[in-house]
């Protein structure tokens, strides 16, 4: 069932992602971003954390009915090649609204990535709309 507020507070297990040079280069190339530091794979583009898809079973939705409402990233420092980040995602909110397309369920999902010493590297906040 969608819009069930009992999912609020559910967290993914911490999931480890290693930032690879080739992955940075492919991501930047897909955006058409030729910033030399990205193409060399040294620093990752600001939206690179979208590639860190820590599993959240409560969000196993029919993807074709998912729209992206909002996205926010805050960075303590740039993400670099060789970073090993432990990423945890958490459902912060879940509510239902009547919209022009009928009933829509909104999920607000936060994430944070930490280095192996536990230092925060980035946070994100995502609003997805399920219609």
């Amino acid at each position: 069932m969608h819009g069930d507020p009992s999912v609020i507070g559910r967290e993914s297990p911490p999931t480890v992602f290693e930032v690879e040079r080739g992955a940075i280069g492919k991501f930047a190339a897909a955006i058409g971003d030729e910033t030399p530091e990205y193409l060399a794979g040294e620093i990752a583009p600001p939206t690179f954390p979208t590639t860190f898809r820590a599993p959240l079973p409560e969000l196993a939705l029919d993807l074709s009915r998912v729209l992206h409402g909002e996205e926010e990233y805050t960075y303590e420092r740039p993400i670099r090649q060789g970073d090993v980040l432990s990423v945890t995602r958490r459902i912060e909110d879940c509510y239902t609204r009547q919209g022009s397309l009928g009933e829509m369920t909104f999920y607000v999902v936060s994430a944070e990535g930490r280095d192996p010493q536990g230092a925060l590297v980035y946070r994100s906040r995502t609003t997805i709309i399920y219609r």
Binding site: A30, I31, G32, D33, T35, E37, Y38, I43, P45, P46, T47, L67, H68, G69, E70, E71, E72, Y73, T74, Y75, R77, P78, R125
Partner: peptide
């Protein structure tokens, strides 16, 4: 589109200068 804006803001002051980026689609 957010990636384009990420490219944009990084081009203004360098990729290491970006502290926050938030968008609504």
């Amino acid at each position: 589109s957010m990636g384009f804006l990420g490219q944009y803001v990084a081009s203004l002051a360098g990729p290491a200068a970006v502290r926050r980026l938030r968008v609504r689609f």
